[in-house]
């Protein structure tokens, strides 16, 4: 096999339609080659970087049936630099319940940020250790959110876990505003065209 040093130039000239060539990224390549090193990279730092990066959403979602008959689910593909990285923004809505109820989560592939817009009779306690450490409320009734930043220190190994620490979410009372708030917290750009209205009831009882 002959590897010509001038090969690239010749072929490059042959491709009249090639517009821009991004030079090969040696550092990225080296990371990919040294698999063990990649695995050792701090899992938490990867999530920090992912959350800090500006992301967009791909595709036009729609509400589909969820795990239960009364549940509706929508999934947006989250794109980083225009490319899919296996992350999704998922919303679950319960249009048949008396009070407004929904959940919004960012999955990569585990849930790394979540907003639970629950009725007032649903209660979420925080462990006493976390109350002392983070100053979170010991007990929350109704809507709350599980931020990555509050649960980061609880991650062990390479899985996120269940995000047990939550904070009360009291200022917003509408679906669209809550979705915009969530996207703002997680650095996701959500254009109006890709936003969904809260699903309507499709039966009377």
């Amino acid at each position: 096999m002959r590897r010509s040093r001038g090969g690239i130039g010749r072929c490059g000239r042959g491709l009249a339609n090639a517009v821009v060539e991004k030079p090969f990224d040696q550092e990225y390549f080296a990371r990919g080659m040294r698999k063990k090193t990649t695995a050792r990279l701090d899992f938490r730092k990867r999530i920090d970087a992912f959350l800090a990066a500006k992301k967009t959403v791909g595709g036009t979602p729609s509400w589909t049936p969820g795990n239960r008959t009364d549940e509706r689910r929508a999934v947006w593909l989250v794109l980083l630099n225009g490319q899919s990285v296996g992350a999704t923004l998922q919303a679950t809505a319960y249009p048949h319940e008396g009070a407004l109820r929904f959940t919004i989560g960012l999955e990569w592939p585990d849930c790394i940020w979540r907003l639970d817009f629950e009725p007032f009779y649903k209660h979420h306690p925080n462990a006493h250790t976390e109350v002392a450490r983070l100053g979170v409320e010991p007990h929350i009734a109704g809507p709350h959110y599980h931020a990555w930043q509050d649960n980061r220190h609880l991650v062990r190994g390479a899985r996120v876990g269940q995000l047990p620490v939550a904070r009360a979410f009291r200022r917003i009372r509408k679906w669209e505003a809550a979705m915009r708030w969530f996207c703002g917290q997680t650095n996701i750009v959500m254009p109006t065209s890709q936003m969904l209205d809260f699903p309507r009831r499709d039966r009377l009882l």
Binding site: R3, R5, G7, I8, L15, N17, A18, V19, V20, E21, K22, P23, F24, D25, Q26, Y28, F29, R31, G32, M33, K35, T38, G86, P109, A158
Partner: peptide, 28 residues
């Protein structure tokens, strides 16, 4: 956990092609 498809493709490519011949994010 999803595999990082791009990294795995890149690794496979490197076994057969010199890095200088591989172009990332090429536009056509």
């Amino acid at each position: 956990q999803k595999r990082n498809l791009e990294v795995e493709i890149l690794t496979a490519l490197h076994h057969y092609v010199s890095p200088a011949r591989i172009l990332r994010h090429r536009q056509f």
